[in-house]
């Protein structure tokens, strides 16, 4: 461990003995959260999320394309995350590293497994032509807990998405985009909630300094129907079964608080 991180860890652990955190929050408090949608006019949907000093911009682009051969009656969603170097001295230019890939896959799972988007409604010609939804997460400022900010941004951006209606001419096999717009069929609102383990303590929504010294973390994505759609223990460290039960309960509670801050809900 770097020297500064080791001094910081002692300090953070000392504070945690009295249930205090380095930025003055309680163990179960999120940082202030704001979500603003429709911030990029050229994108079909977008959201800017500020979680404390962490800033994430999510853009949604929607194209027409072919479905997967084994899922002819479903549209396609893909999630990509870029850790652009302007966001942190720890980010370097280049293709997504393992952190960005893991983050994208957990956000994707949360949305896909809850069937938050009704993919069957994205089919134009079964087996041939469907809508392809690209969820692109751009990290702008990294002050910790990028996963929750990205997941919140992704679902907020999807809710804000408007796509042109299309008409398909079976004889000419041509697709005509209409001037009329419709919403994406978003049916559920999955929200990820992450807790970090530092020493024997669990803290929700870890900031950058806490992430530097944590042993590991766990993310639980839940929807408004009381279902879990993704779980990911990440980095090192370990958890007891009782801690998993506690984290799950807190994830439901925090997710319902966060849901109220999403525009248009």
């Amino acid at each position: 461990m770097e020297i500064m991180a080791s001094i910081m860890k002692d300090h953070i652990l000392q504070l945690l003995k009295e249930d205090k955190r380095i930025d003055g929050r309680g163990l179960e408090d999120f940082r202030p959260l704001t979500v603003e949608t429709n911030v990029i006019e050229k994108a079909e949907g977008s959201a800017l999320v500020k979680l404390g000093d962490t800033q994430i911009l999510v853009g949604i682009k929607v194209d027409l394309g072919e479905p997967f051969p084994d899922l002819p009656n479903m549209g396609v969603i893909t999630t990509n995350v870029e850790f652009v170097p302007l966001a942190s001295p720890t980010f370097e230019p280049g293709p997504p590293d393992e952190r960005a890939i893991e983050l994208a896959r957990v956000v994707d799972r949360g949305i896909r497994e809850s069937q938050a988007i009704d993919l069957e409604k994205l089919v134009i010609v079964p087996g041939k032509l469907v809508r392809v939804v690209f969820i692109d997460v751009h990290v702008l400022d990294h002050d910790g807990n990028l996963l929750d900010a990205s997941g919140i941004g992704a679902i907020a951006a999807l809710l804000s998405t408007r796509i042109p209606k299309v008409e398909y001419n079976e004889e000419t096999e041509e697709v005509v985009m209409l001037e009329e717009y419709e919403k994406l069929p978003v049916t559920r609102i999955p929200i990820p909630v992450t807790l970090a383990k530092i020493g024997g303590n669990l803290v929700v929504d870890p900031n950058f300094e806490e992430e530097q010294v944590m042993d590991g973390k766990i993310t639980i994505t839940t929807d408004e129907n009381g279902y879990i759609s993704a779980v990911q223990k990440s980095e090192g460290g370990s958890f007891k079964l009782e801690e998993i039960a506690y984290v799950t309960d807190l994830a439901y509670k925090k997710a319902s608080e966060i849901r109220e801050k999403i525009p248009g809900l």
Partner: peptide, 15 residues
């Protein structure tokens, strides 16, 4: 010590 070091879930489950 019954320490859980990997935990993932892919799917749709109640608590």
């Amino acid at each position: 010590k019954n320490d859980i070091t990997l935990l993932q879930m892919d799917g749709y489950l109640t608590k």
